[in-house]
Computed example of a mutant assay.
Amino acid sequence: MSANKSSLRIGIVAGEASGDILGAGLIAALQQRFDEVKVEGIAGPRMQGLGAQSLYPMERLSVMGLVEPLKRLPELLRIRKHLREQFLENPPDVFIGIDSPDFNLGLEESLKAAGIPTVHYVSPSVWAWRRGRIKKIARAVDHMLTLLPFEVDFYREHGVPVTFVGHPLADDLPLSPDVNTARSALGFAADDRIVALLPGSRGGEVRYLGPLFLQAARWCHQRQPDLKFVLPAANEARRAELDALLAAFPELPLTLLDGRSHEALAASDAVLIASGTATLETLLLKKPMVVSYKMGPVSFAIFSRLLQTPWVALPNLLAHRELVPEILQNDATPAALGAEVLKFFEDPLLCDRLQRQFNEIHQQLRRNASARAAEAVCALIQAKS
């Protein structure tokens, strides 16, 4: 569908780095369809680089768990109230909430009730837990854009218009990663044996998983002293936290990076990683991984009771079975994580099987996602105009 007017005004809210990537791809695709695209809301650096105006720092929305966000609730409610007033006073052609469902769905519900078309980009894990949210989603969302194929049926069953768009990372990343170039860029040799540590991009994740992952690295290094480790810091705040943690691990041959998580993953032989969206990039780079997660004990107690799927790791959800080990909460000890990581160095056939299965999933997710998302947004605007 070609644009039927020369300009487009978008309200948008992205709450974390993965949403910023999705938003940037969508904005770029819409900019190819319209002479002018104005974007306002909450945006990260990638979207801002395409001209999006961010009224608040995206970091303010990056909270984790079930209990922890309550501490920030007054601030989050103030931000949402201001955005609601802003968009109701000067309505955009469409509002797009990217992930962050606890923040975005309430905003979308108000805007949809006022006649503003609403799109939610990235399905909440409503099929996995808190399934009652589908009622609110139906009230709040004119069109759902999903990244994963198995999500579509759930929305169709509940009468929510939905489009599976695939994932932009699957479009962007080659089927065969360039390992040697990544290693060279990071100063590693072609024959180095490398483990990437990715404890997450949020402060709470680094607090819970940072020490654990470093202890697991020490456990591995004591048994295989030739291993090297690489640890990308998501931003300056995480860098400071990781620097402080590393003081207790002077013996580890570890390279701490400012950003560059993609190169760290591409260069690695195996990955120890927090459950989350980064596991998808790891899969697309065909890297064997051990997935872990920890959160506050109250949050985990609530979460585990509500969970309605046997897995939390995206590779396992996509495969409908346990492709990679996931070790959560109290089960996540340095020895348990380290033992699973070392299996990838002891069993080449295991790695080969994983990489073939990762390649199949990669091809399923290659759908020119940003263009498909832009097509769905344009179709909604036309239908509502």
Rank of each mutant, 00 (worst) to 15 (best):
S2D: 11
N4M: 14
V13D: 13
A14H: 09
A14L: 09
G23I: 15
L26A: 02
A28W: 06
Q32G: 08
Q48P: 12
G51E: 13
Q53L: 15
Y56A: 07
V67N: 06
V67F: 11
R78H: 08
L83K: 14
L88D: 06
N90C: 09
V94S: 05
I96K: 04
D99C: 01
F103Y: 10
F103A: 06
L105F: 06
E108N: 08
E109F: 12
P124S: 03
S125N: 05
S125C: 06
S125Q: 08
S125F: 05
G132H: 13
K135W: 10
A138N: 09
R139Y: 09
A140C: 12
L145C: 02
L147Y: 00
P149I: 00
D153S: 14
E157A: 14
G159H: 13
F164E: 01
V165G: 01
H167M: 00
P168V: 03
L169N: 06
L173T: 01
L173Q: 02
D178G: 10
V179C: 11
A189Q: 11
D192V: 10
R193W: 07
V195H: 14
P199T: 14
Y208E: 15
L212M: 14
L214V: 10
R218Y: 04
H221K: 06
V230N: 01
A234K: 11
F249W: 07
P250I: 08
E263A: 12
L265F: 08
V271E: 05
V271Q: 04
S275D: 07
S275T: 01
T282H: 04
K287L: 03
K287G: 00
S292M: 08
F300T: 02
A301P: 01
Q308K: 15
P315V: 10
E322Q: 09
E326P: 15
Q329G: 06
A335H: 05
A339H: 05
L349R: 09
L350Y: 11
C351R: 15
L354Q: 12
R356K: 15
I361W: 07
Q363G: 00
S370M: 09
A376R: 00
S385Q: 14
